[in-house]
Simulated scan of single mutants.
Amino acid sequence: MNLNNQKIIVNIDDKEYIDWKMCLKSKLKMLKSCNLEIDSKNLDLSCSDISEIIEIASKYNCKVFGFCSTSSKTIVSSQSLGYKSQFSFENCLDNILNINDKDLTFSRTNFHQGTVRSGEYLDSPGDLLILGDVNPGAKVSAEGNIMIWGRLLGIAHAGSKGNSQATISALQLRPVQLRIAKKVARGPKEKPQLGIAEQARIDSEEIVISPLET
């Protein structure tokens, strides 16, 4: 397959189409063999959605190299499958509050870029998205969900104000301790499967860990 060297950005969140699948197929019909970056805007895409995008693109002789999105779920999903991903802050500037060089706060989600090291503690009044690892000896806490674009090796507490529906997601989930609302669990000892992101949630009054949207 001879692909053009030029990378084409394809927006699949076009309101002229019923859904992103129709949008993607329609736009790929107008393209010859090429390299693609998928701009999904604020669409929440799971790992299975990402895999379907790759499959659709291959049918049009196109190859997807990366994803751009304002959705933390899409970023985690695409990264867990090995694709380059970047956050887009387009149309979000009114909601951004600069805390310092490493932290950005949105109306619902707090972003932290960089490794959380031993002895450090992060606490979020909403959801918390970390672009980096959480090392042993570090602790992160959020009133909502915790999403870690990296390894969770320390302590994480989601739903810190009692939200039992909160979840903890990571590309590698091997913490010292997990907490969701008032439930507490130790991290699993077995080695994680490569390339599969994991999620911890409360099920039947216990914290369970399972693959994230596989």
Results as ranks from 00 to 15, higher is better:
64 V>I: 15
65 F>L: 15
66 G>E: 12
66 G>N: 11
68 C>Q: 14
69 S>T: 11
70 T>N: 13
71 S>G: 08
71 S>C: 11
75 I>G: 01
75 I>F: 02
79 Q>W: 08
79 Q>R: 14
79 Q>F: 08
81 L>F: 03
83 Y>L: 14
83 Y>F: 15
83 Y>A: 03
84 K>M: 04
84 K>F: 06
85 S>F: 05
85 S>G: 04
86 Q>N: 08
89 F>T: 01
89 F>A: 01
90 E>N: 01
93 L>F: 13
94 D>C: 07
94 D>F: 10
94 D>H: 11
95 N>R: 14
95 N>A: 14
96 I>E: 01
97 L>P: 00
98 N>G: 08
99 I>D: 10
100 N>T: 06
100 N>K: 07
100 N>G: 09
101 D>V: 09
101 D>E: 15
102 K>F: 13
103 D>K: 14
106 F>Y: 04
107 S>L: 11
108 R>E: 13
111 F>C: 07
113 Q>H: 12
115 T>V: 10
115 T>G: 00
117 R>W: 00
118 S>V: 11
118 S>E: 15
120 E>F: 08
120 E>W: 09
124 S>K: 10
124 S>W: 10
125 P>M: 08
128 L>C: 12
129 L>V: 14
132 G>K: 05
132 G>T: 05
133 D>W: 05
133 D>T: 03
134 V>I: 10
